Amino acid sequence: MTSSSTAAPTSLEAAMRRPTVREGQHLIHASRHPRGCLPTAVNARLVKAMLAEDWIYREDMDGYRLEADEALGYRGGTPWRITDRGRWTALTVRQRRLLGELAESRPTPARRDARATALVEAQLAEEVGETLRLTTLGRRLVRDSTQRREADQP
């Protein structure tokens, strides 16, 4: 796997709707939250749109993930959380490319640029000494992206 292939959009990804500016802000907020929670003040129209794209989900009080229609009507007070697809959507192409480089297990020096900082804040990478490495969550996102791309191949 090369970093350019990791960042290259599949026809499925190209067909996916990009988030609006406000949706992107909420997704970035959630990706940086320790438990992946959206802010409490997200309006119902945005929640419904992000839920339809599978960027967010909600659990009941027992921790079971609710179906979209159940989640919209649920009054249990649990927060909306970001999905892996939502996390991937919130990344820029350059951040995806850096994730791909890290996934190749090449020693990558810890960087002080905005994309590396954003990956660390989103809990997708971590600094280990002078090296930047993927977290478990970061590896899962890259793996899922690769699987989507391979499933999209003719």
Rank of each mutant, 00 (worst) to 15 (best):
E53S: 10
D54A: 09
T108K: 01
T131P: 00
P79N: 03
G86R: 07
D69H: 13
P107D: 00
G63R: 04
E130Q: 06
G73R: 11
Q123E: 07
S105F: 07
L99T: 06
L102T: 02
A122C: 07
V128I: 07
M50S: 03
T92S: 15
G129L: 07
L91E: 02
T83A: 07
T108N: 06
T131H: 10
L119A: 14
L119E: 12
R85G: 04
A90Y: 05
E53D: 14
D113Q: 04
A116L: 00
A116C: 01
D54L: 07
T117M: 08
Q95L: 01
G77N: 13
S105T: 10
E130S: 15
R75W: 02
A49E: 03
E53C: 12
E104D: 10
R87Y: 14
E130C: 02
M50Q: 03
A122G: 01
L98S: 14
R115H: 10
R115K: 09
E104C: 08
E70K: 10
V128K: 12
R96P: 07
L99N: 14
R81S: 04
E67I: 14
R94F: 13
A110E: 08
T108E: 08
D113L: 06
A125Y: 00
R106G: 08
Q95D: 03
Y64C: 13
R111D: 04
A90V: 00
A49R: 10
V120C: 10
L124W: 03
R112C: 02
V120A: 12
A52T: 05
Q95G: 07
W80S: 03
R87S: 11
A103S: 11
E53T: 09
T108A: 02
Y64G: 14
W88H: 04
M50F: 03
A49P: 00
T92G: 08
R87Q: 15
L51W: 06
W55H: 02
